[in-house]
Design a protein around this nucleic acid. Structure first.
Length: 224
DNA sequence: TCATTAAATTGTT
DNA sequence: AACAATTTAATGA
């Protein structure tokens, strides 16, 4: 980095802030890097930062009492998460793990709360984000029951190309078939077959450790 | 830069 | 779940 990049200006919620609000946000921001496989936080941690993915990929997951791993969501470039724990001053309810090398931007709790109290632009962003995620979770519950495994994989993949949630993400995502399986709630074998099927239909290109999406909207509508 | 080796990921049963 | 094949990343000449 030749000139220090302005994390605040890069953040997707910055667009609607006033100069004054932006300056306030800038003071509460810091940056951290995590290597692939490392925990960003554990369930039960009291981590008082609102967190955004500058570059990379993380998953929000938990381990069931039976010891079974479960992934709820992935977050990639430009996505922000953890407002629930920060708002309520609660301990984190899930593990957050870096799926690949990741750089995170972190906004301190006090700055977050200040923006929450004072900035209408910031609140507009929060409502939009919460609404978008809610829609996604509802859709997930719905299609978990009615769609076949290929469609589940397709729709879970399309998450990462949601422009509202991840405006800065590109068309390729670095994720293994195993991780995608955890996310979609299917076995690795099923992911493998699904990816081949989707590739045959020309919706994506599967390489190893990497998937390039050709037609994201078709993936999000996929059913059969 | 190239060859060798280890590790990760994929493909198949 | 286990195994083999393939690709990448790391190492050292």
């Amino acid at each position: 980095m030749s000139t220090k990049r302005d994390i605040a200006l890069d953040a997707i919620w910055a667009a609607e802030l006033t100069d004054d609000e932006l300056e306030r946000a800038r003071r509460g921001l810091s940056e951290r890097s995590f290597s692939k496989g490392s925990y960003i936080c554990h369930r039960g941690d009291r981590l008082d930062h609102w967190t955004g993915v500058t570059d990379g990929l993380i998953k929000i997951s938990a381990i069931s009492a039976a010891g079974k791993a479960m992934t709820f969501a992935g977050v990639t470039d430009g996505g922000w998460f953890g407002e629930g724990s920060v708002l309520k001053g609660e301990r984190r309810q899930y593990d957050v793990v870096a799926i690949r090398d990741t750089r995170l931007a972190m906004l301190s709790r006090s700055s977050f709360l200040w923006l929450f109290e004072n900035s209408t632009g910031f609140n507009r962003f929060l409502v939009r984000q919460l609404n978008e995620r809610m829609g996604q979770f509802i859709a997930t519950i719905e299609y978990d029951r009615i769609l076949g495994p290929t469609a589940r994989v397709a729709r879970n993949l399309s998450w990462f190309f949601n422009r509202t949630l991840y405006p800065r993400a590109g068309t390729t995502i670095e994720i293994s078939q195993e991780e995608l399986g955890l996310l979609a709630g299917v076995s690795r074998q099923v992911v493998n077959r699904a990816l081949r099927a989707l590739e045959d239909e020309g919706l994506l290109k599967a390489e190893h450790g990497r998937i390039t999406v050709v037609d994201a909207s078709a993936l999000s509508r996929y059913d059969s």
